[in-house]
Design a binder for these strands. Structure first.
Length: 273
DNA sequence: AGTATAACCTGTCTGC
DNA sequence: TGCAGACAGGTTATAC
């Protein structure tokens, strides 16, 4: 469910809620969440530790403690809320009396407990690709990604190449750069690569300003309970059968690698063979 | 290196 | 109304 803008929106609320707070209690309700530790190990490591920072890398949330870090992925349905409900899988009680609850309807969410020395060098973060919102996002680095014959939509979704894009923002950025989802990346011109290079962070930033996309506000809300509103800015995603906002041609959908791709057949002409 | 498939779960929507 | 099947924002393991 959540892609970079949604995770970033969650991160900033969590940061305000728990920066410099001490974790008094960690309570795991569903051990399937835990990838590399037991409930006891987690409790032992985090209780009475201070949360120094809540960071984000790609779609991962990172709670930095003094001597460890908690790396959490929301997958399809994970969310953080401030009130317990019947889908709570994990909760953290803080020293100000407040609690944070990790909620996960589909139970795909994950938690890794890792040591603090460069988190980026350890699983599950070690293989993540370029971050659109950091200094690594240079045109030179970006160009390196275009040497294979993969289809552009699949390449954008590959977290080992670019960290943070999911199905919604991939479809949207391709529309905004007039690229067909099936265009092989090694046939894309330098000009077009440069456009993508600029549009990806621009789109993500724009979406962050709208607190991300809440297609179904039962699923994605920020911890303070606010839904995003970028769904009203979407131009092709989830708009099959509706007119293209630029040319009125009917938006189409097709399956690409088990995922739905949406595009305007006129603005995004298919790769010429 | 690439792709295709299934798997992890639960809920909702569609069509018969 | 009931029920089967498809589908959903993500990622990974496995088998070609």
């Amino acid at each position: 469910m959540p892609e970079l803008p949604e995770v970033e929106s969650i991160r900033s609320v969590l940061q305000g809620q728990c920066k410099n707070r001490i974790i008094e209690e960690s309570r795991v309700e569903d051990t399937r969440l835990l990838q590399n530790c037991t409930t006891e190990q987690l409790r032992h490591t985090v209780e009475q530790q201070t949360i120094r920072e809540v960071d984000r890398i790609g779609k991962y949330l990172i709670f930095r403690l003094d001597r460890a870090a908690l790396v959490n992925h929301l997958r399809m349905s994970g969310r953080w809320i401030l009130e317990e409900d019947d889908r709570t899988r994990w909760s953290l009680t803080l020293d100000d009396g407040n609690s944070l609850y990790f909620d996960d309807l589909r139970r795909f969410g994950t938690l890794h407990l890792i040591s603090e020395n460069p988190v980026r060098k350890q699983p599950p973060l070690q293989k993540l690709g370029l971050e659109p919102t950091t200094n690594d996002w240079t045109l030179q680095n970006f160009h390196q990604l275009f040497k294979t014959s993969r289809e552009i939509k699949r390449m954008l979704l590959d977290q080992k190449r670019i960290a943070g894009l999911g199905n919604i923002y991939s479809s949207e950025v391709l529309f905004r750069t007039n690229l067909h989802p099936e265009q092989p990346v090694n046939t894309i011109s330098s000009d077009r690569i440069e456009q993508l290079f600029r549009k990806i962070p621009e789109l993500l930033q724009h979406a962050i300003e709208h607190r991300g996309t809440s297609m179904d506000d039962q699923l994605y809300i920020t911890p303070s309970g606010s839904p995003g509103n970028f769904q009203f800015q979407l131009q092709v995603y989830n708009r099959e059968g509706e007119p293209c906002p630029r040319c009125d041609t009917t938006i189409e959908r097709f399956k690409q690698g088990q995922r739905s791709s949406y595009f305007c057949p006129k603005c995004q002409s298919p790769p010429s063979s």
